[in-house]
């Protein structure tokens, strides 16, 4: 499980670092968050008396990732309305 989490995390970081498309970068961020979720679930089985703290925190992370994705997509829509494309290299002006 930890190896899977590390693999997903590495894929997410590689996606963030190598992509120009803003939506692809957002997908990489989501991969990183899901890797953290896998880690929480993997370590949750070692809590005493069958505690569910790790699993509940995973749900919190999923909710926060959804909120962050909504805001990020709204920003990407704003970038597209101003620049005509979602290339992060082109979005280098504060205001036109």
């Amino acid at each position: 499980m930890l190896l899977l989490s590390a693999l997903v995390f590495c894929c997410g970081v590689y996606t963030i670092l190598t992509r120009k498309n803003a939506v692809s970068i957002l997908m990489g961020v989501e991969l990183v968050l899901n890797a953290a979720n896998i880690n929480f679930v993997a370590f949750a089985q070692y809590t005493r008396n069958g505690g569910i703290h790790g699993n509940v925190f995973t749900i919190f992370v999923i909710l926060l990732a959804a909120a962050e994705a909504a805001v990020a997509l709204a920003i990407i829509i704003g970038i597209y309305q101003n620049f005509g494309k979602v290339d992060v290299d082109q979005a280098d002006l504060m205001k036109e």
Partner: peptide
């Protein structure tokens, strides 16, 4: 045990969605 935490996160999610809808709106310039 986690009722208040989930309620707070749901309010945060609602605020995030409202903010996203506000950011993504298209202004009508006359």
């Amino acid at each position: 045990d986690y009722l208040f935490a989930f309620e707070a996160v749901s309010v945060l999610l609602l605020a995030a969605l409202v903010g996203a809808a506000f950011l993504a709106r298209k202004e009508v310039r006359e």
